[in-house]
């Protein structure tokens, strides 16, 4: 469904992505794993059109997205949950969520809101709260809700577990599965290998802006390279 082909990205003169190929099929959860600064966020921004690639193509259902600016892509069925939630901090939760439907016809808003609040019922109690004052976990829910309001077929999520408590990480993972069960494909990134690949059907390993490994979640977890470098190092670092 979503396909990145040979994506190159530059910030000024420095190249940060090198011919990245990825795809997400209907109904899949796909993880991008990689260390800090490897280019995970940049992949998602390039897919969403928030950062113009210097080479390669983004296709959605075979359709070229290059000419579609970021503001068009929600109309085509894409949405993104940015790193660190990025809510509109001085607006209410309700306003934040409704703005997620900005790109959709106004008559859909009511129905989308019901659908989203059905998936994330806890938000009903906080609709009038100021978004910036919520806890990190609650903000993440609002951010997900805002993304879903665009009724995406593929949802991009940039480090959805960043800064969350272990309990909250479980909640958010469960929500991601639920969303996926609703038929929304998910492409998310995460630095923790176990978390990435346990949740996903497939995954990519990104290092220094290049895809160095890809496979099913289990294959990735079992790969000696991932085991040695990421699982090993991670577990030591955690303790």
């Amino acid at each position: 469904m979503l396909r990145l082909e040979g994506i190159d990205v530059h910030y000024g003169a420095t190249q940060v992505l090198w011919s990245v190929d990825m795809h997400v099929a209907q109904g899949e959860i796909v993880a991008i794993m990689g260390p800090n600064g490897s280019g995970k966020s940049t992949v998602l921004k390039a897919a969403m059109g928030l950062k113009a690639p210097s080479g390669g193509r983004v296709r959605l259902d075979g359709r070229e997205m290059q000419s579609a600016p970021a503001t068009e892509r929600p109309r085509h069925g894409m949405a993104i949950v940015l790193e660190r939630r990025r809510l509109f901090p001085r607006m209410s939760v309700h306003e934040n969520i409704v703005l997620g439907a900005y790109a959709r016809p106004a008559r859909e808003t009511r129905g989308s809101l019901d659908w989203v609040l059905g998936l994330l019922p806890d938000l009903r109690d906080h609709l009038d709260a100021t978004a910036g004052k919520l806890s990190g976990g609650q903000q993440q829910m609002v951010a997900i809700a805002r993304g879903l309001m665009a009724r995406p077929r593929v949802l991009l999520m940039d480090e959805p577990f960043l800064g969350l408590s272990p309990a909250m990480v479980r909640t958010v993972s469960a929500i991601m599965r639920t969303i996926n069960d609703e038929g929304v494909a998910i492409l998310f990134n995460e630095q923790n290998a176990k978390l990435s690949f346990a949740l996903s059907h497939r995954g990519y390993l990104l290092e220094s802006g290049r895809v160095i490994l890809s496979g099913s979640g289990q294959e990735m977890l079992d790969h000696p390279e991932v085991k040695r470098v990421y699982l090993g190092v991670r577990e030591e670092a955690v303790r």
Binding site: T71, R86, M91, L99, A103
Partner: peptide, 10 residues
């Protein structure tokens, strides 16, 4: 409040 997030919602 957040220009990039605004762009992202369209």
């Amino acid at each position: 409040q957040d220009a990039e997030a605004a762009l992202a919602v369209g």
